[in-house]
Amino acid sequence: MNALIVEDEILIAEQMQRMLYDVAPHVRVLGVVSSLKALQRWLVQHPEPDLIFMDIQLSDGLSFAIFEQFRLRCPVIFTTAYDEYAIRAFRANGIDYLLKPVEEEDLIRSLEKLRRFSGSYEGLVRQIRQEPAFREKFIVHHRQSAVPVSVQDIAVFELDQLIYLHKRDGQRYVMDHRSLEEIEAELNPVQFFRANRRQIVSLDAIERFRTDPSGRVLLTVAPVGTIEISKEKAPVFRKWINR
């Protein structure tokens, strides 16, 4: 099993590696990253690991932010000096939540918990990596009728006070969903990309894109027009579109 450690305190990261070597020598540590930016670069440049040990409070923000940029499917064991983030940890990919300083028996317990999910580490990873069932269509309402819209006909989902579905033929419908996050969870990440806080774009609707002098990526999307992707998220977009 390949694991990644996300930790901004060098001594704690080294301690975690030593404990893993002692109690789980079959777990291979691929590397240690110490910030959100470093984690983002690592995930862009490498295949997803089988397991992540993730500190919550990093030098440049909370590690939960990474789940807004990447659809990670591997299990995560969170580590932190505080217990106030437990609920958010389990809403992410968290299978356990370790308080610092991490004791060897706590680490063993977490790995045992991971094993119990399916009888083996590899079995759990296979379960988590199974492709979920994604939406093939959405039902929207127009006047007094319900209208099925195939995902192949969708260009953009957009938040503008209400949530709108833009079809590639120019039609626009108001949706019943409460948030873009709810919609994003139902979409195939190979086909749709969360461009920013307000917009999710379909791969097939992107006509062209360019990088401006500030490092932002500007998409030309029919029929919506220009959609901006921040400089920080630009590497994630390039990895996605070059699959």
Rank of each mutant, 00 (worst) to 15 (best):
W42L: 12
R41A: 12
Q127W: 06
V147Q: 04
R88L: 11
E104K: 14
F67L: 06
A65C: 00
V147H: 05
W42F: 09
E48N: 12
S63Q: 04
D96W: 07
A89E: 08
E84D: 14
L43D: 08
A92S: 15
V140G: 13
V151M: 10
Q130E: 15
P132V: 03
R129D: 09
Y121K: 10
D106E: 15
S120Q: 04
T80L: 09
V125Y: 12
D60N: 11
Q45V: 09
I56F: 04
L98T: 02
P101T: 05
L98E: 05
E84V: 11
D60M: 12
I128A: 14
I128V: 12
L165H: 05
L98C: 04
Y173H: 12
Q45A: 15
I95H: 07
I56Y: 05
D60S: 10
E48V: 09
P148V: 06
I52D: 10
V149A: 11
A146G: 01
F64M: 08
L43S: 06
F117Y: 10
D96R: 08
I139C: 02
L39G: 01
E131N: 11
P47H: 13
D160N: 14
G61W: 05
K113L: 13
T80Y: 04
L162T: 09
I183P: 06
A146H: 00
A86H: 07
G119R: 09
Y85D: 10
A146K: 03
R91E: 13
E182W: 06
L159T: 07
I163S: 07
D153Q: 10
K167L: 06
D160Y: 01
E84P: 01
L72C: 12
R126C: 00
Q152I: 02
E68C: 00
V76R: 01
L107K: 04
R129L: 11
Q161W: 11
V125D: 12
R88G: 07
G61R: 10
S118M: 06
F157R: 03
A155F: 02
R126D: 14
V140Y: 07
I163H: 05
D160S: 12
E136D: 06
Q171P: 02
L107G: 03
K100D: 04
Y97L: 04
A155Q: 12
F117G: 07
V102R: 07
F78W: 03
L51C: 11
Y164W: 13
F70Q: 11
I108E: 13
